[in-house]
Amino acid sequence: MTAVHDVDFTLEYPYTRSTGPIVGPWLTGLRDGRILGLRVGGRVVCPPVEYDPDTGVSTSPDDLTEVGPAGTVTAWTWVCAPTSKHPFAQPFAFAQIRLDGADTAMLHAVDAGDMAAMSTGMRVVARFRPERRGAVTDVYFVPGDEPPPPVEADPDAGSVETTEHLIGVRIREPLFPFRARFARGLLEGRILGQRSPADGKVHVPSRGYDALNRVAMGPEHDVEVADVGTVTSFTEIAPIQYHGQTETEPWIRCSVLLDSADTTVGGIDVRHIGVEEFRVGMRLRMVWKPEGERDVSAIENRWGGITGGVYERWEPTGEPDVDPELLKDHPF
């Protein structure tokens, strides 16, 4: 993306959960076509939990007991425009359902077809999905009392001890004004910082304010800084593989104090200089990508500085090193 754009980022991870001694049997039950409640404190709660919800006293899996499959709606809401994360593609109801034999209501989904079919006090009954994996979504509810067809449980399937959940959030927002000017500057081949009106220090990239002196900085405080500077800090990273990681080979991540700036620019990735010759105090120059090939899509409001999308590489200037002692104020 070779223009300044709004932030559009999806934060997403496939979490793995261990189910424990009560929720595990409950999910196993759903997979096998049974809904379990738990006798605790003189009543039956569903879904079952590891503790008395009123007192925190521990419960026992020995007190699990089958409930349902039919029950009564005690409250409901209609979802007119389901998203991909909802249990149905078509409009449906989320309802509190007190299953027969249980004393508490469970939040679940009712495939009622039409909002007019929903009412508090109505009867609903479980339906088990053909493909079940030991998840709360293995079951759903429909209006009526007619028992579900029997489910054939796989006797070798074992108990459900872990569950997996791809959890994510999509973040869309405009760039803050300074961040947008910073990104536009990079597209034009200029590195923009801001000079604090409080103490004259130049922040690169700026947050749009001087946090130490608590003063705002606007376009009138923008200054251009050099694309040449001094390494103040670096790490060689051997990439750990995780969800979304695209790096496979070790590389150097460094911070550079650009000439005429007072803050270091972190997160600069160097792939064309060997770690054996890399050092604090080394003078580097940024070699820009050609205008038109620069990409600032990695610049967000709270993430991304001089991104790899705008430079070909950083190369030694050949100047003598700066004495690390003079960089003591910039170990970040």
């Binding site: 934060l11 997403e12 991870y13 790490t235 990273i237 990439p239 750990i240 995780y242 969800h243 979304g244 990681q245 695209t246 790096e247 991540r253 990735d269 993430w303």
Partner: peptide, 12 residues
């Protein structure tokens, strides 16, 4: 490491 990387590639 994923979490400390803000969910982005290239975490240090």
């Amino acid at each position: 490491t994923w979490a400390l990387s803000g969910g982005r590639s290239g975490g240090q």
